[in-house]
């Protein structure tokens, strides 16, 4: 049985193709300004990656902030539902899911069957989302992809007072002017966002095992800060940003199996 999932996020659109629940194709494209067009492209690329034709897909479920614009999907599911299903498929022992994307952060508590018990979302403030690290990387003049690795060179914890992304940008510039080593500032940046994310997670309660998904899970500096904050080891999939799309495709499979 072939099923598909598309996750239309704020910055990127992810598509995955599953054969009987196993990943056979995937693709990620920038969201751009036309969600539908970008989703179409991501889907076609994922199909090409799997070597399958569109007609072979029995069900396609869309998720993510732009899910309603994907008119060619057979159904939609919330990000919370998709995340929980995706993590349950990857890590059956996980009871808490932390998803940190470009413009949103969310925490989900679920039972052993992957059923959602509680969740909390931050979508109002950039300080708990990828947009924060993006702005700080710019202020530090360090490429975003290198920011995490770079922060691991830090030898000293420096405090950041600002919570707000806009204020933190000014603070980073001030710290740079004060000759604070950039690696230490990068570390402070990751400590700050981990702090914000942790406060969202605490609202749903922390039950182990805890999985981290979303694009920020690729940032080793953020992972270190978050693990230190939560005092536990996080389960992280090899392609963390695809977890939502994977979950949507699993739900598509579930609906066909019933």
């Amino acid at each position: 049985m072939i099923t598909a999932g598309i996750d239309a996020g704020a910055k990127t659109i992810k598509a995955v193709i599953l054969r009987d629940g196993e990943l056979v194709g995937r693709s990620m494209v920038p969201a751009g300004f036309d969600t539908r067009e970008a989703a179409e492209r991501a889907y076609n690329q994922a199909l090409a990656d799997s070597g399958l034709a569109r007609e072979e897909v029995k069900a396609l479920i869309a998720t993510g902030a732009g899910r309603k614009e994907i008119s060619f999907a057979s159904d939609t599911v919330t990000e919370v539902g998709a995340d929980a299903r995706g993590v349950a498929g990857l890590f059956p022992s996980a009871r808490t899911v932390i998803d940190v994307g470009a413009e949103e952060g969310r925490a989900i508590r679920m039972d052993e069957s992957g059923k959602v018990l509680d969740f909390a979302v931050n979508e109002k403030c950039a300080a708990g989302a990828g947009a924060f690290t993006e702005a700080m990387a710019r202020a530090l003049e360090v490429p975003l992809e290198e920011l995490g690795e770079f922060s691991l060179k830090s030898t000293k914890a420096v405090p950041m007072n600002a919570q707000c992304t806009v204020f933190a940008e000014s603070e980073v510039v001030t710290l740079v002017h004060a000759k604070t080593p950039k690696a230490d500032i990068a570390r402070a940046v990751h400590d700050a966002i981990a702090d914000r994310v942790t406060s969202t997670v605490r609202r749903v309660g922390i039950t182990e095992d805890v999985a981290l998904i979303g694009g920020l899970a690729r940032n080793v500096g953020f992972v270190r800060s978050l693990e230190e904050d939560l005092k536990l080891k996080l389960l992280i999939p090899s392609d963390p940003e695809f977890t939502g799309a994977f979950g949507a495709a699993l739900i598509a499979l579930d609906t066909k199996r019933v």
Partner: peptide, 17 residues
Amino acid sequence: SSTCVVFAKSEASALLR
């Protein structure tokens, strides 16, 4: 509609487009 200045910036860019 966004409260956060960072998100309001994206929203304003989209409106200009």
